[in-house]
Nucleic acid binder design. Structure first.
Lengths: 145, 145
DNA sequence: TAACACCTTCGGCCCACTCGAAGGCAACTG
DNA sequence: CAGTTGCCTTCGAGTGGGCCGAAGGTGTTA
């Protein structure tokens, strides 16, 4: 199967700009052109693009990805370095997931907190005014980022 | 307690450049200066900074964070919008964690694969040559990104 | 009194896109 | 068969979110 740049962009969920950027920077070495000079992508190109997207979205700089893809093309003797690169990326990604999970806790707390305030305020009509006042104070106290 | 910009940078694990950037862009409205014009950070500033870092690292643009912090300062009537923002950020973060976990699977596969190759090659000395040839072919086949 | 360590502001630089302009080619439409 | 649509191309400029260096101030230690 072969695909246009737009089809690939949709399938990979990235922009055509990014794909051209990767291609222009030598990271998609097997992409062909049709008779109108349009890029045509085969399944192997999609595999390359998939690993590019994976490495980029886990924070590897383009320059390192270029280097990694060069290593792949140099053959077997570069496996040790490739192993090290992937191992480092694994660690980095585990750390990033961990950080995000911690940030998520903070965000969850905010969501729950604001939800509380909204529910209590909806109930204001049925709440004695001294309690409403207390809530008012809660809101004030909680007016922090 | 009060802290210098460097202490804060170390504690929050971000650069002093970033902190100044956030301050210069109005996201740390309560930071004071000492008699030499140096920024001094109190605990409340750290709380603000903590939420800034949390939102930035989960992908919220600076402009949105500014808006969120404005809402906080406007008081109680902005809680519904703040709730929506945090809810959106929660979803976004869950998605990002999910994406990262998928990328991690790809990376894990690479790590395992390269580890296999390395282990087999170390054992080459003890392996009959026809098997070594087969491995050779494996390596060739796997010479993909 | 000088060296060192920290801070300031200002302005340029960087990465990885992102987008617009200007134009080419192919296919459908009136 | 001119025109419009819709895709593609290249090139070059712009953007976000910092990063960093220069130039200079202050203050403490030796």
């Amino acid at each position: 199967m072969s695909y246009t740049i737009q089809e690939v962009a949709k399938q990979m969920n990235i922009s055509t700009y990014s794909i051209r950027y990767y291609h222009d920077h030598g990271m998609l070495p097997f992409v062909k052109r049709d008779e109108n000079n349009n890029r045509i992508f085969e399944d192997t190109d999609l595999e390359w693009l998939h690993i590019i997207v994976c490495l980029r979205q886990t924070g590897m700089p383009v320059e390192r990805i270029q280097h990694y893809l060069d290593l792949v093309q140099e053959g077997e003797q570069t496996v040790p370095e490739r192993y090290d690169m992937m191992k480092a990326q694994q660690t980095r990604t585990l750390n990033e997931i961990n950080d995000l999970q911690n940030h998520l806790k903070t965000i969850n707390y905010k969501v729950d907190h604001y939800a509380d305030i909204l529910i209590n305020h909806k109930a204001d009509n049925f709440v004695p005014s001294n309690l409403a006042e207390a809530q008012q104070q809660d809101v004030y106290q909680e007016n922090q980022p």
